[in-house]
Simulated assay, not measured.
Amino acid sequence: MKNIAKDVYQIPLFPRNAINCYLVEDILIDAGIRSSGNIILKALKNKYVSKHILTHAHADHQGSSKIICETLNIPLFCSELEKPAAENGNVTFEYPNPNHFISKFQKKFWAGKGHLVFDTLKEGDQIGEFIAIETPGHSSGHLSFFREFDGVLIVGDVLTNMNLLTTKVGLHEPPTLFTSNKEINRKSILKLASLKPKTLCFGHGPVLFNNGELEKFIETLY
């Protein structure tokens, strides 16, 4: 577990930061794949955790949600639009091609069983010192979380900071194969960029301490 900023910890779940979750104050954001549970629980062993939140209910974010919530006896939160997938475990239903072999692989080996959602989150909801930001596109109900006083942004999968095939570090749009609406996601990228984030924490790729990289990337989109 790596301390990123005040009360913000990255928990890398795959080599090269290929899949990450985060402890923000006493809140666990995302939970990797089904086999990530032991890694997460070990990282949280000496930490108090009050709740678990999903940026979105894809297999590499909700995979260990059920075991984490049941083991730590904590409630699960997500957006209203992500609630069905979070509860029923059908995490590929929004994929452009749910019958693609990678989609089927994720559903069979990565996705966790569903877990009851305690409550839903929407734009502007306060999450500790963070604010929930609705950032649809990669999935319909995707959420990001922003802390204004120091510019820390939990991106989720609106952007990745690595090429998921080569694992080479760098900003990318999320893969089309797993993104329900690329154009709407681009609007969400611009929405997040307008916040002027200083520290970006991704679902995939290392944390970025922004020195103009985000702004340069935005220029390549249009």
Rank of each mutant, 00 (worst) to 15 (best):
I184S: 01
F130C: 03
K83H: 03
L171W: 00
E70K: 12
G137W: 06
H100A: 15
D157Q: 10
I102W: 14
N161E: 05
T167L: 15
S103Y: 07
F109I: 11
S103P: 09
A59V: 00
T135H: 00
D157I: 01
P75M: 02
N88C: 08
F93D: 09
R147T: 10
V155C: 13
F118K: 14
I184A: 12
E123M: 08
D60E: 11
V91Q: 13
G128H: 01
S140I: 06
H58D: 05
I133H: 10
F130L: 06
I53S: 03
I102R: 11
K113L: 13
T55H: 10
C69I: 00
Q106N: 14
I102S: 12
Q106G: 09
F130T: 08
F109Q: 11
E94C: 08
H138L: 02
L116K: 15
L54S: 03
E129I: 06
N73C: 13
I67P: 11
F146S: 08
N163W: 03
T179L: 07
L177F: 03
V91G: 04
V158R: 08
S139G: 07
M162T: 03
N90L: 09
L171E: 01
S139Y: 01
T160W: 00
I74C: 05
I127G: 02
D119M: 03
V152C: 13
E82N: 10
T166Y: 04
K108F: 13
L116P: 00
G170S: 10
K113S: 14
K187S: 12
G114A: 09
P136F: 05
T167N: 12
A86T: 01
V155S: 08
T179A: 04
K187R: 15
N163Q: 07
S65F: 05
T120M: 01
G151H: 12
T179K: 08
S180Y: 05
H172K: 13
Q106R: 13
L164R: 11
T135I: 11
G156Y: 06
V152N: 10
S65V: 07
L159V: 04
G114W: 11
P98T: 04
